[in-house]
């Protein structure tokens, strides 16, 4: 995949695309990107940051400053495997994984990704299949993604498929939900679509605790009223 290159190190105000940060802030979990300390905890916790062109810390910095093109064309957003290490460790409470999802969404919506790159193709095929049968079948999903991204890979990946099939772990007929239930599911998804993007989220105080230690309050004690 072609790596983005900076043609200039500095951007002038009018070249910045500030709407990117607004969209990320409107994502549940992305509200706090302006509290980012740029400490780099996310990148050091991330198991795949060593393969990224920009670390998560840098991506958040670039999102805030409006470096949209660099962010959206980066390889890093497609590498995130949703392990949530960054999210539970971020001292500023930024749900970095949700920020990554938001960036993937923007890239997919705007059609900015290499044509045969499997991650966005997988996402699209996954959804198409889900809408068709209500569930996913790995055999057809993998087959469709491979055909669209790297048909030659079928030559090297069929032995695994065969081994799974021989053990009764590869189902050629998809597990599907009844027609009526599938129609219900589609009605729900359509209803969401027709309601539009709507207003930005407002978060109420957390209900399910994140897997992390409580952090002590910092700063001077609050004055009694």
């Amino acid at each position: 995949m072609a790596r983005p290159t900076f043609s200039q190190k500095v951007k002038y105000e009018k070249e910045l695309k500030r709407d990117l940060a607004a969209e990320v802030v409107a994502t549940p979990g992305g509200e706090k990107i302006f509290s980012c300390l740029q400490c780099g905890t996310c990148g050091s916790a991330c198991p795949v940051s060593v393969y990224m062109d920009y670390t998560p810390r840098r991506l958040i910095g670039m999102v805030r400053e409006g470096f949209k093109d660099e962010v959206i064309t980066s390889f890093a957003i497609w590498l995130c495997a949703s392990c949530y290490e960054c999210t539970v460790r971020c001292p500023a409470g930024i749900r970095v994984t949700e920020v990554m999802y938001a960036l993937k969404r923007i890239a997919i919506r705007e059609g900015i990704y290499p044509r045969h790159f499997p991650v966005p193709v997988l996402a699209k095929e996954f959804i198409e299949m889900l809408k068709g049968t209500g569930r996913n079948n790995e055999f057809w999903l993998v087959l469709r993604v491979l055909l669209k991204t790297a048909p030659m890979k079928l030559l090297t990946s069929w032995p695994l498929g065969l081994r799974l099939w021989r053990r009764g772990r590869m189902c050629l007929t998809a597990s599907r939900i009844p027609k009526a239930a599938n129609a219900d599911l589609l009605r729900i998804l359509d209803s969401i679509e027709s309601q539009g993007a709507g207003e930005r989220h407002t978060a109420a105080p957390g209900s399910s605790p994140l897997a992390r230690d409580e952090q002590p309050a910092c700063g001077p004690p609050a004055k009694a009223a």
Binding site: S82, K104, R105, I127, L130, G134, N136, L185, I192
Partner: peptide, 16 residues
């Protein structure tokens, strides 16, 4: 009649 939960994939296209 359960349906697929969407995994970590669906949210990369539409969060709602």
């Amino acid at each position: 009649d359960w349906n697929c939960c969407g995994a970590t994939t669906y949210i990369a296209v539409d969060e709602y």
